[in-house]
Simulated assay, not measured.
Amino acid sequence: MTHLHYRVWDGEQMHYWDDEGISLTIEGSNWFLHHERIGYIASSEEVGAALMWGTGVKDKNSRPIYEQDITKFPNGDFNKVILNRGRFLMKINGVFGKELDSTCEVISNIYQNPNLLLEAAE
């Protein structure tokens, strides 16, 4: 990945790479998110915390697409964005689907709306 956009779910809220005062430290396979005034926010060692990378692609509304986003395509299909072997793909019904492109629309992510993919399948 050549881009450095990221976001972190701390179990309650999403923090973005460009939020004021935010910094991410990566040491080996561990990561730590800090805020210059608050201090420690989250790390890879916490259950429920997650680091997600930006894909470098924007959706049809020019919104950046991140790993673990839930997207909707013009045909009505809902998908989850995943990182697999260095490539961002759409996961459709548990199977790796098509390459990520800008025809989709980001509607949420699996952390803030975990039931959205289940509801879409019904």
Rank of each mutant, 00 (worst) to 15 (best):
T2F: 14
T2G: 07
H3D: 05
H3M: 08
H3C: 05
L4E: 09
L4R: 05
R7M: 12
G11E: 00
E12V: 10
M14Y: 03
H15W: 15
H15C: 03
W17V: 04
W17H: 14
W17E: 08
D18R: 10
E20I: 14
G21E: 13
G21S: 11
I22D: 00
E27Q: 12
E27F: 04
E27K: 11
G28R: 06
G28D: 13
S29M: 12
N30Y: 01
N30R: 07
N30M: 06
W31S: 02
R37H: 10
R37K: 14
G39C: 13
Y40S: 10
Y40E: 06
Y40G: 08
I41C: 03
S43P: 10
S44E: 05
E45D: 14
E45T: 12
E46S: 08
A50T: 10
A50Q: 14
L51G: 00
L51R: 00
W53E: 06
W53P: 01
G54P: 01
G54Y: 02
G56M: 12
G56V: 15
V57I: 15
K58W: 02
K58H: 11
D59E: 12
D59R: 08
N61C: 10
S62T: 10
S62H: 09
R63F: 06
R63D: 10
R63W: 04
R63H: 09
P64Y: 07
Y66L: 10
Y66G: 04
Y66E: 05
E67V: 03
Q68P: 01
I70M: 02
P74K: 11
G76M: 10
D77Q: 09
F78S: 03
V81T: 13
I82L: 07
I82H: 02
L83K: 03
L83A: 05
N84L: 08
N84P: 00
G86D: 02
R87S: 15
F88T: 03
F88M: 07
K91Q: 09
I92T: 14
I92M: 07
I92G: 02
G94F: 13
V95T: 11
G97Y: 04
K98M: 10
E99D: 12
L100M: 08
T103W: 05
C104R: 05
V106K: 06
I107M: 13
I107R: 06
I107Q: 05
S108T: 11
Y111D: 03
Q112M: 09
N113D: 09
N113V: 10
P114E: 03
P114N: 09
P114H: 09
N115K: 11
L116I: 07
L118N: 03
E119Q: 15
E119M: 15
